[in-house]
Amino acid sequence: MTPRNAAAQTAFGPMALAAIEHNEPPARRLVDDDLAESFLPNRFRLLVRATRSEALRRAVVSAIDRSGPGLWASIACRKRYIDERLSDPLNDTDTVVILGAGLDTRACRIARHSDMPVFEVDQQVNSELKAAVLQRALGSVPPSVHLVPVDFEHDPLIPTLEEHGYRRDRPTFFIWEGVTQYLTPEAVRATLAQLRDAAPGSRLVFTYIRQDFIDGTNLYGAESVYRKFRKRRQVWKSGLVPEEVAELLAEYGWRLLEQAGPSYFRDTYIRPTGRDVAASAVEWTVMADR
């Protein structure tokens, strides 16, 4: 039975988006994830199958974009950006840690062609959900995939990972996608502090919401998103200022390599598809190393 838990519910939306994107012709996809549909609960799989109809797919994307302009493309493009950085031939890390994994399929896609260990870190309820999903969709949890329950607000990250077989001396690719806004600023910094001792050669990719959106001083046309995540309930708690990200990372021993925002996603991923969509300025993606 799917847990009716707010934290667990946030895992469904991005994977439903990835699954619907997979119904696009290959040349028009913003992200390519053939496992996403199978990881979703039945009610979402029914929606995804319905969007095999081009007309209905366009209607769904348009409806999402009306409520949060550019968020559909931003989420799809950030997923593609991370997939590309992870598969870059110059990336010589030999362990992956996904912080706030939700229903992410990367670990299982990696397991198809590699026994590289992947540690999926999430709240207990999401780890239990993921174990059940993998049992249903794949028959078992792949041997290289390790589910690690952690509460980012309270639990020690690295020691808990080590209890599940992680080795801190191995260069690691850390993925922290769609998570930081749900944490308090103190928890964001505490997590960065726990990553301070990552092995040389490690990489970190994470996403964040702009601080001016969190503060309500610039809503970037996404008023309904602000009402949902900031006014009705304080679901989104943290934001960052793009010009201050390098300094923040340096405090914890990381070096900013690049930040990807709407113009990068437009030029690199959206224009080649010929689709009339735009990425939001609300969310940014960061790549760093040490």
Rank of each mutant, 00 (worst) to 15 (best):
residue 45 R to G: 03
residue 54 E to L: 10
residue 56 L to G: 09
residue 64 I to H: 13
residue 63 A to V: 02
residue 66 R to G: 08
residue 40 L to I: 03
residue 71 L to R: 11
residue 59 A to R: 10
residue 50 A to H: 00
residue 71 L to Q: 12
residue 59 A to Y: 02
residue 40 L to F: 09
residue 62 S to M: 15
residue 39 F to S: 05
residue 41 P to R: 03
residue 63 A to Q: 10
residue 70 G to T: 01
residue 52 R to Q: 07
residue 58 R to L: 14
residue 47 L to C: 04
residue 70 G to K: 04
residue 60 V to R: 04
residue 45 R to H: 04
residue 68 G to N: 08
residue 53 S to D: 10
residue 44 F to R: 14
residue 70 G to W: 02
residue 46 L to V: 15
residue 68 G to P: 04
residue 70 G to M: 12
residue 64 I to Y: 11
residue 55 A to I: 07
residue 62 S to V: 07
residue 51 T to Q: 05
residue 70 G to H: 12
residue 60 V to T: 08
residue 68 G to F: 13
residue 64 I to G: 07
residue 63 A to T: 14
residue 47 L to M: 00
residue 47 L to S: 05
residue 46 L to A: 11
residue 69 P to I: 07
residue 65 D to Y: 06
residue 60 V to F: 06
residue 62 S to P: 01
residue 42 N to T: 15
residue 68 G to H: 08
residue 46 L to P: 00
residue 39 F to C: 12
residue 58 R to P: 02
residue 65 D to A: 09
residue 58 R to V: 06
residue 49 R to G: 04
residue 58 R to N: 14
residue 55 A to C: 12
residue 55 A to K: 07
residue 42 N to E: 14
residue 55 A to D: 06
residue 43 R to D: 15
residue 63 A to H: 08
residue 52 R to E: 08
residue 70 G to Q: 09
residue 69 P to W: 03
residue 45 R to Q: 05
residue 67 S to G: 05
residue 38 S to P: 04
residue 47 L to R: 03
residue 43 R to C: 13
residue 48 V to G: 05
residue 56 L to Q: 03
residue 60 V to Q: 02
residue 42 N to W: 14
residue 43 R to S: 14
residue 52 R to G: 13
residue 63 A to N: 07
residue 53 S to I: 01
residue 44 F to S: 01
residue 48 V to C: 02
residue 65 D to W: 01
residue 48 V to H: 01
residue 61 V to R: 13
residue 43 R to L: 13
residue 59 A to Q: 05
residue 68 G to K: 03
residue 66 R to S: 11
residue 40 L to Y: 01
residue 54 E to H: 13
residue 71 L to E: 14
residue 59 A to P: 06
residue 56 L to H: 04
residue 63 A to I: 06
residue 57 R to N: 09
residue 53 S to G: 04
residue 50 A to S: 08
residue 62 S to A: 15
residue 53 S to E: 03
residue 41 P to K: 02
residue 49 R to Y: 00
residue 39 F to K: 03
residue 42 N to M: 14
residue 58 R to C: 07
residue 41 P to C: 03
residue 54 E to I: 09
residue 59 A to C: 05
residue 64 I to E: 11
residue 67 S to C: 14
residue 45 R to C: 00
residue 63 A to Y: 03
residue 63 A to E: 10
residue 68 G to T: 13
residue 43 R to P: 09
residue 66 R to E: 15
residue 41 P to W: 04
residue 51 T to M: 04
residue 49 R to E: 00
residue 59 A to W: 01
residue 62 S to Y: 06
residue 67 S to V: 08
residue 56 L to M: 11
residue 59 A to I: 08
residue 49 R to S: 06
residue 65 D to T: 07
residue 45 R to T: 02
residue 53 S to M: 05
residue 70 G to V: 01
